[in-house]
Amino acid sequence: MAEVVSPITRQVTKGDQDTRSPPVVVRLQDVEESLIYDRHGVSFPFKRLCQDRKSIIIFVRSFLCYSCKEYVDDLGKIPIETLEDADIRLIVIGQCDYHHIEPFCALTGYPHEMYVDPQRCIYQKLGMKTEERFTDCAKRSPHVKSSVFVGQMRSIWRAMTSPIFDFQGDLHQQGGAIIAGPGSQVHFSHFDMNRLDHMPITWLLQLAGVQQTLDFSDKPKIIHV
């Protein structure tokens, strides 16, 4: 008799599925009514993001963070047609004010959905980490190209040249990635240990059921598998 698998999954980290980190249970029911905001400041419940179909939801720590910026750079290279063919939504959520969404999309070339949780209600209710931890389980993101020094200098320059100087989110807050839907079903979750611990995008696409992967090493190319 086949084993019945619960729709709520444990956290999986990159590099080793048999992680030493304690399992994380994600209950979307706890955040379904929490409000998120679009680029116009219009709010709606979080549950709408994955109500009708499967969604890849990326939580970033700060729009000013160089590693988040470079990660979203690569997320922006995913063709819209690839997601449409798989009937999957790709969503980035930040924790700053909504007026930062349009400039960040323009900066990164990100064409997909982006919202904000300015009070970090969803981050906190889901149990995403604060502060950074560097352990064997936390691997460096393959999407971050800059060194820490160069990346931080670029972040500082962007902050200084921004029309509204703020940190665009709590710098202690870490992000994560969830694959969920339809409804409150959670297929996969990963909570970042630090600013470099992003889930590789090709892994997320494959786990979500996308039958194509992207090569981010140079120019993105569609590889049929």
Rank of each mutant, 00 (worst) to 15 (best):
V92I: 13
V72A: 10
I78P: 00
A86G: 09
C50D: 02
D73N: 15
R89D: 13
Y71Q: 15
D38F: 02
R39P: 08
L49E: 05
R48P: 00
I36Q: 05
L64A: 11
F46H: 10
E84H: 14
C68Y: 04
G76P: 00
D52P: 00
L35K: 11
S34I: 06
E32W: 09
L35W: 07
D87V: 10
A86H: 12
D73T: 13
D30Q: 03
V42C: 03
S67F: 13
L49N: 03
L90Y: 01
R48H: 06
I91T: 08
E32G: 15
A86K: 08
Y71F: 15
S62M: 09
Q95R: 12
I80P: 03
A86W: 08
I80Y: 11
Y37I: 03
D74C: 10
Y37R: 07
F44Y: 07
I58M: 13
F44S: 08
D73M: 15
I78Y: 02
D38Y: 04
K69V: 12
R89N: 15
K69M: 10
K69R: 14
Q51V: 00
L83E: 06
L75I: 07
E33M: 04
L75F: 02
P79Y: 09
R39I: 12
D97M: 15
D38N: 14
R61C: 13
Y66D: 04
D97L: 15
F44Q: 02
R61P: 05
R48W: 05
I57R: 03
Y66K: 05
F63R: 14
R39W: 09
I56M: 11
D52F: 07
S34M: 09
S43G: 07
P45T: 11
L83M: 13
I56V: 12
D97K: 11
L90I: 01
V42P: 00
I58D: 14
L49F: 08
S55T: 15
S34K: 04
I56D: 11
C50V: 02
D30S: 07
V31F: 13
Q95Y: 06
I91K: 09
D74S: 14
D97H: 14
I93N: 03
F59R: 02
V92D: 13
R53T: 04
I91W: 06
E70Q: 07
C65Y: 01
I91M: 06
H40F: 13
P79Q: 06
L35T: 06
D38A: 05
